[in-house]
């Protein structure tokens, strides 16, 4: 059995002004082939105007088992949200 080509994660920008979004992955020996495969696999219906591919092994990810500690500070700092503050009725917009 031969070896799989490296895995590349594929990101597509649906149209100008939007972020590239992760859509899936492809196997390819190099970046150029990865782009070609990504085009054929993920943009057969005008899904995008721009493609990024990045080797999956080059992505560092947070550990889901640590997500409690990692994201907890955001939940306890509700004063970061504007709705935390009560405005006097006289002020209509702020």
């Amino acid at each position: 059995m031969s070896k799989d080509w490296p895995l590349w994660e594929v990101f597509v920008r649906a149209r100008g002004g939007l972020d590239h979004r992760h859509v899936g992955s492809v196997h390819a020996p190099d970046a150029e082939m990865a782009l070609r495969h990504a085009r054929d696999t993920y943009t057969r219906r005008m899904e995008g105007v721009s493609l990024w591919v990045v080797k999956s092994t080059d992505i560092a990810a947070s550990d889901p088992d640590q997500s409690g500690e990692l994201f907890e500070p955001a939940a306890t700092k509700i004063y970061r949200h504007p709705t935390f503050y009560e405005l006097p009725d006289a002020i209509k917009h702020m």
Binding site: S2, W5, A28, P29, D30, M33
Partner: peptide, 8 residues
């Protein structure tokens, strides 16, 4: 596939 490997 072999050609693509060789190229890379």
């Amino acid at each position: 596939r072999a050609a693509a490997d060789a190229h890379e």
